[in-house]
C-alpha cells in the first residue's frame, strides 16, 4: 500500500550567520501492507514527521521514490492527495469554528457536494462520539476531543491510507486507550493506518508492524513480537528449591539454559509455547517446582541494541 525507496530530505537551517544542513531523513525504505496499522517509532527529531510530510505531498523529497495507494508520489502528487488522509502532529482545527463546520469544509475541499459533506460529517461525528460537541467552537474542546476532531478531519473523505502523526501525545491514559480503539476501528473499516509514536507500549500494543527510526534512518523493522524475539527470544526463569536445581537442569537439557543458585533460566524462541513443555518435562522428572516467570525483551531493548541508547532516555 505504501512503498518507498531511498527517501531523503535535508533542511538548511540558519543559526545567526551560520548555515547548517540538517539531514532529517537519510534514505528510508518502507513497505506497508494494505489494511495494517504500521507504526513509526522513534525519539524526538528522528525524522518521523519529515517522512510523513513527504509522503503526504507537503514537502518534496530531495531524493528517492514512493508509491502510495498505487499513485506515484513524484509523478502524480494530486492523485496521492485524493487517496490519502493526513493528520498533523500539531493539530489542525481553528479555535472559532465548530467541529461540524470544519468537517463539512474539509469534505468539500475533497470534492463532496454540500449534502454529501453534511451527511458524512454527521456520520463521522457519530462514530467518533463527537456529536454532543459538534456545534461548539473548537476552542472549548478538551485535548482528547480536539484530537479526535483532527482524526475525523483526516478520514472524512474515506481515504485508503491515513497518516496519523503522534495521535496520542499529550493525552491522558483514558483518552489514549480511546484513541487506540478509534485507530483499530479504522483498520477494521479497511483503512491502512500509518502512525508515528514515541511510546513503546503504543507501538507494541497497537501496531501490526513497526519500523524503528533514529537519526533519519530506519534501524529495525518487523512485527513488535519479531523485533523483540530477534534480540534474544524469551527468557523463562524457573525458581526451584536449591536441592532440585541440578535435577531440573538435566531434565531440561534440551534447552539452552543457565543454572543459578535457586533457579534455572531458559532461553527460548517463544515463551508461551515453551512453558507448558517445560512444565511437563519437570513433572515427568519429578522435580518440585517453585515459581515460573516469563520475561520478554521490550522494544526498548530492541532500540538499545540497535542504537546503543535507551528510547526512554532520549
Amino acid at each position: 500500500m505504501i512503498e518507498t525507496r531511498g527517501l531523503r530530505k535535508s533542511f538548511i537551517s540558519r543559526q545567526g550567520r551560520e548555515k547548517k544542513t540538517v539531514e532529517a531523513v537519510r534514505g528510508v525504505d518502507l513497505n506497508v501492507a494494505e489494511g495494517e496499522i504500521f507504526g513509526f517509532l522513534g525519539p524526538n527529531g528522528a525524522g518521523k514527521t519529515t517522512t510523513l510530510r513527504m509522503l503526504a505531498t507537503l514537502i518534496e523529497p530531495d531524493d528517492g521514490t514512493a508509491t502510495i495507494a498505487g499513485a506515484d508520489l513524484r509523478a502524480d502528487p494530486g492523485e496521492v492527495r485524493r487517496r490519502i488522509g493526513y493528520v498533523a502532529q500539531g493539530g489542525s482545527t481553528w479555535d472559532d469554528s465548530t467541529a461540524r463546520e470544519e468537517l463539512v469544509l474539509q469534505a468539500r475541499l475533497y470534492g463532496a457536494s454540500k449534502a454529501e459533506a453534511l451527511s458524512r460529517s454527521a456520520h463521522v461525528l457519530e462514530s467518533f462520539q463527537l456529536s454532543e460537541y459538534a456545534d461548539r467552537k473548537c476552542k472549548t474542546y478538551s485535548g482528547g476531543q480536539r484530537r479526535r476532531v483532527d482524526i475525523a478531519l483526516g478520514i472524512i473523505h474515506e481515504p485508503r491510507v491515513v497518516f496519523l502523526d503522534e495521535p496520542t501525545t499529550g493525552l491522558d491514559p483514558q483518552s489514549r486507550a480511546h484513541m487506540w480503539d478509534e485507530v483499530r476501528r479504522l483498520r477494521a473499516e479497511g483503512m491502512t493506518v500509518f502512525i508515528t509514536t514515541h511510546y513503546l507500549d503504543e507501538a507494541d500494543a497497537l501496531c501490526d508492524r513497526i519500523s524503528i527510526m533514529d537519526n533519519g534512518e530506519i534501524v529495525a523493522s518487523g512485527t513488535p513480537a519479531d523485533l523483540k524475539r530477534e534480540i534474544s527470544g524469551d527468557v523463562v526463569r524457573v525458581g526451584l528449591p536449591v536441592s532440585a536445581v541440578s535435577a531440573a537442569a538435566s531434565a531440561l537439557e534440551a534447552y539452552k539454559l543457565e543454572t543459578y543458585e535457586d533457579n534455572v533460566r531458559l532461553y527460548v524462541d517463544d515463551g508461551a509455547v515453551a512453558i507448558p513443555q517445560i512444565l511437563r518435562a519437570l513433572d515427568a522428572a519429578g522435580v518440585p517446582l517453585g515459581t515460573i516467570e516469563l520475561h520478554r525483551p521490550s522494544l526498548d531493548d530492541v532500540f538499545l541494541t540497535k542504537t546503543g541508547r535507551s528510547l526512554r532516555e532520549s
Binding site: 494530486g78 492527495r81 493539530g91 489542525s92 481553528w94 475541499l109
Partner: peptide
C-alpha cells in the same frame, strides 16, 4: 495564525 493552528497544512493535503 492559521499556519500555526495547522489549518493551512490541513488544506494543503487536500486536492484544493
Amino acid at each position: 495564525a492559521e499556519l500555526r493552528a495547522g489549518v493551512i497544512e490541513r488544506s494543503r493535503v487536500t486536492p484544493v
